[in-house]
C-alpha cells in the first residue's frame, strides 16, 4: 500500500510542480531554480524535497486511513540511554520533527516525545546504534516512563574550542577506526579536532614547505 501511494503522490506532485514551474518560467525565475530544476526532475529530487514529500505522504497516510487501525494506536518510543551516542540521525529522520535537539553547557540534549502516532518508525530504523524501539502503549513497562531527555557530553575542538561531537560519537568512531588501522600514540591527534580544523591543519602542513620557501626569498 505504501508503495502505491508513494507512486501516486509522486506523479501528482510532478504534475503540480511542472505547472507551477511553467508559471514561474513565464514570470522569470530565480537563478537557483533555473539551474537546479530540470535536473532534479530527471534525476529524482533533492533531499529536502524528498523529505517534504514523505512528510506529505505520511500525513496523507493517517488522514486517508479510515480504518482507524493505525492512527488510534499510540506507540511509545523506548530509548536505550546507554546505547544512544547522540548522533542526531533520528532527529533529522523524523518527518514531524518531534525529536528536539539543543546544545548548551557542553552538552547535547535530545528530547524525545512521549509517543507518536505515525506509522513510520523512521527514527528507529535510522538509529545506527539501534537505541530506539517502539512498544505499544499497553505493553509499556515502567522502565520507560523515566526522563525523555538525554544529555550527552560534547567534545570541544582542541584548536578552535567549538563543540563538534559527543564524547560517545567520538568513542564510537575511535573504536571503528582502530579496527581498520592501528592508531599509534600521537597518530590520533586529529580525532580531537573538529572537521574544519582538521582540514586547516592538513592545509597548513601541506603548505609548510612552500611558505618557508617563499619567506626565504626575502621580501615576501
Amino acid at each position: 500500500m505504501m508503495k502505491e501511494m508513494k507512486e501516486e503522490m509522486q506523479e501528482g506532485m510532478k504534475e503540480e510542480m511542472q505547472e507551477g514551474m511553467k508559471k514561474e518560467m513565464q514570470e522569470g525565475m530565480k537563478e537557483e531554480m533555473q539551474e537546479g530544476m530540470k535536473e532534479e526532475m530527471q534525476e529524482g529530487m533533492k533531499e529536502e524535497m524528498q523529505e517534504g514529500m514523505k512528510e506529505e505522504m505520511i500525513r496523507g497516510d493517517t488522514k486517508g486511513d479510515t480504518s482507524g487501525e493505525n492512527c488510534n494506536k499510540k506507540k511509545v518510543l523506548a530509548i536505550d540511554a546507554e546505547k544512544c551516542i547522540g548522533c542526531r540521525a533520528c532527529s533529522s529522520a523524523c518527518p514531524e520533527g518531534l525529536i528536539g535537539l539543543s546544545e548548551e553547557g557542553g552538552r547535547r540534549n535530545l528530547k524525545f516525545p512521549e509517543s507518536c502516532s505515525l506509522d513510520c518508525e523512521r527514527c528507529a530504523l535510522t538509529c545506527p546504534e539501534e537505541a530506539i524501539t517502539f512498544v505499544s502503549e499497553e505493553g509499556r513497562s515502567p522502565a520507560f516512563s523515566g526522563s525523555r531527555t538525554l544529555a550527552l557530553g560534547l567534545m570541544a575542538c582542541r584548536k578552535c574550542s567549538a563543540s563538534f561531537a559527543t564524547e560517545r560519537e567520538l568513542e564510537r568512531v575511535r573504536q571503528a577506526v582502530s579496527l581498520k588501522v592501528p592508531l599509534r600514540p600521537g597518530g590520533d591527534f586529529w580525532m580531537e579536532l573538529c572537521p574544519a580544523c582538521r582540514q586547516e591543519s592538513f592545509r597548513e602542513k601541506e603548505a609548510g614547505a612552500i611558505l618557508r620557501e617563499r619567506k626565504i626569498k626575502g621580501n615576501l
Binding site: K46, E47, E48, C87, R88, A89, S92, A93, T126, C127, P128, F164, A165, E169, L170, R172, V173, A176, V177, W190, L193, C194, P195, A196, C197, R198, Q199, E200, F202
Partner: peptide
Amino acid sequence: TGCGLCTLACPFGTAVLRA
C-alpha cells in the same frame, strides 16, 4: 542514515554532511 559519523572519522575533514 545521516548520522555523520563518517565526517568524524575523516582525518582530513573533507567529508561534509549536507541535508
